[in-house]
């Protein structure tokens, strides 16, 4: 049986906290963007698509640096946030969640898009002839039918968010109890003499959480498809 110290527990709890906040923040925008990319017909769709996928290919440190530029206390977004609302994102849990959200955003968008592409537009056409307007159709037909994609995206992003390192450490730094999530704690442990045991325990927990996330995503996906009458 593994015994975790208070600090180690803190890192686990913080990771779960940051990952769930990041999913909550990015879910609605991801659904909107996925809709635009799948159904939208506008100039620049290609550019938007590329932009959304940037975090997958750009080094995470660069994403963290860009966030620092934008949301830093003197950045074009960070300064007004601080001044008007007293919100400081850098070096805070919220900031860690923001960095995680940006990094996992393409994962959610991709999964939601896959879900949306499985929705037969003919069903939405049928709903329109039955008297349902655009919002009504989206809520009663499109959204339920794309929900397996949304859930899969949310769970995958959550699992990936538990392990976000580069962007978080760059933007939010490595503050125990504030921004020190699991991977940051592991990294800190490996840099500390005699920290191998801590690093090992936390690595095992990371591995377990990621596995649980992926298995959960698969199970939810199957269950949803059954609910939607696809099998």
């Amino acid at each position: 049986m593994m015994q975790l110290s208070a600090e180690e527990w803190q890192a686990v709890r913080l990771s779960l906290d940051v990952a769930s906040r990041s999913v909550l923040v990015s879910l609605l925008p991801a659904i909107g963007i996925a809709w635009l990319l799948t159904r939208g017909r506008f100039p620049g769709r290609f550019l938007l698509d590329a932009f959304v996928h940037l975090p997958l290919v750009v080094p995470p440190v660069v994403v963290g640096w860009a966030l620092l530029m934008l949301f830093g206390v003197r950045g074009p977004i960070g300064a007004p946030l601080m001044e008007w609302f007293g919100i400081r994102l850098v070096f805070s849990t919220d900031g860690a969640a923001l960095a995680t959200a940006v990094m996992s955003f393409p994962l959610i968008v991709r999964a939601v898009r896959l879900g949306l592409e499985q929705v037969d537009p003919g069903l939405e056409a049928a709903a329109s002839t039955l008297g349902a307007g655009p919002i009504d159709r989206f809520l009663t037909v499109t959204l339920p039918l794309m929900s397996p994609g949304i859930l899969a995206g949310a769970v995958t992003a959550f699992a990936a968010g538990l392990g976000e390192f580069g962007a978080v450490i760059t933007f939010a730094s490595n503050i125990p109890g504030e921004t020190q999530t699991l991977p940051l704690a592991i990294y800190a442990a490996t840099q500390t003499p005699g920290g191998e045991a801590t690093a090992g325990r936390l690595a095992l927990i990371s591995f377990g959480l990621a596995m649980c996330g992926l298995i959960l995503a698969e199970m939810i996906g199957r269950h949803m498809h059954r609910l939607l009458g696809r099998f």
């Binding site: 037969d120 003919g122 069903l123 056409a125 049928a126 709903a127 329109s128 002839t129 039955l130 008297g131 349902a132 307007g133 009504d136 037909v141 339920p144 039918l145 609910l227 939607l228 009458g229 696809r230």
Partner: peptide
């Protein structure tokens, strides 16, 4: 379509699967 109130029966029934 939603303001025309015309019923439409398609070749493939297009029932809502959920």
């Amino acid at each position: 379509p939603e303001r025309r109130h015309f019923g439409l029966v398609f070749q493939e029934a297009r029932l809502f699967p959920h």
